[in-house]
């Protein structure tokens, strides 16, 4: 009987450990809240739909335990981050966007109806050839993709592995402060690394080996930015935790200005 407690605790500990590990890798997905937003948001005719990209996650280069449905890496911080961003968009611009949040899936041509899409945890994304072609066409026809929330060398490599399926020959460039995208709505002359909410407990602005923020982009033939890349940063958390007294305002403020500039740029260029 003395062994009953340890024996029964072992599987519980194991389950707890696995859960914590999964949460570390995938983050807290808040499924209940997602379904609330997702299911109770009948679309309202809008000029702009905040659209998050849904894709199949495949952790660490093809492990089979990534997945596509809610709870996949694509839905990290959804919907609160998106919702807070949408509120800022409505308050601070004249962009018509009354519709609730929107999720677009690369497995459908409806992605073409939303010239702006936001994707996170793109170090985990994988595409079929059909999906890669759809995203390729989407971008070259005039669509805009903002990617966020991936950190360090490995994440970058995994992100680029997917990107090379989409735009094989397009160079990635570092954006300079004077680039138009940082002046289209707000003049953003000073940028710094925007950390995730981990910063609240650790004080660290970086994760993994992503010590330096990378403001990068991929352009089309006319120089228009098609893909805006926020690497070694987590703007989604900065929006999500903007109302937290522990999360510094300066990070959220910059994150909001960045995304509003990106959206305005997408709608003007």
């Amino acid at each position: 009987m003395k062994l009953v407690r340890p024996i029964s605790a072992t599987p519980l500990l194991l389950l707890l450990s696995l859960g914590l590990f999964a949460m570390q890798r995938g983050g807290y997905q808040g499924y209940g809240r997602q379904s609330y937003y997702y299911q109770t948001g009948p679309s309202v005719p809008s000029e702009f739909y905040w659209s998050r990209l849904q894709y199949t996650s495949s952790y660490a280069g093809g492990s089979s335990y990534g997945f596509r449905r809610f709870g996949g890496g694509w839905s990290r911080d959804y919907p609160k981050a998106d919702n807070d961003c949408l509120i800022a968009l409505r308050r601070l611009t004249r962009i018509n966007s009354p519709s609730p949040l929107n999720v677009v899936d690369l497995d459908s041509d409806h992605v073409y109806d939303y010239p702006w899409i936001y994707a996170v945890s793109v170090n985990n994304w994988t595409f079929t050839d059909e999906e890669a072609k759809r995203l390729h066409d989407y971008l070259l026809k005039g669509g805009f993709l903002m990617v966020d929330d991936f950190h360090g060398t490995d994440d970058w490599e995994h992100f680029m592995a997917g990107m090379r399926m989409v735009l094989p020959d397009r160079p990635v460039e570092d954006l300079r402060d004077e680039d138009e995208i940082y002046h289209v709505l707000y003049d953003i002359n000073e940028k710094f690394q925007i950390p995730s909410e981990v910063y609240v407990n650790t004080g660290r602005t970086y994760e993994k080996d992503g010590y330096v923020p990378k403001w990068r982009a991929i352009r089309n033939d006319h120089g228009r930015i098609m893909v805006a890349i926020c690497a070694n940063m987590h703007l989604g958390d900065a929006w999500e935790w903007a109302d937290s007294p522990q999360y510094p305002e300066k990070f959220s403020g910059l994150a909001f200005r960045i995304v509003l500039n990106y959206i305005t740029y997408a709608m003007t260029h």
Binding site: E47, F48, I95, P115, M267, T268
Partner: peptide, 8 residues
Amino acid sequence: GEPRWEYK
């Protein structure tokens, strides 16, 4: 009068 896709 507003940012919109048609303009872009």
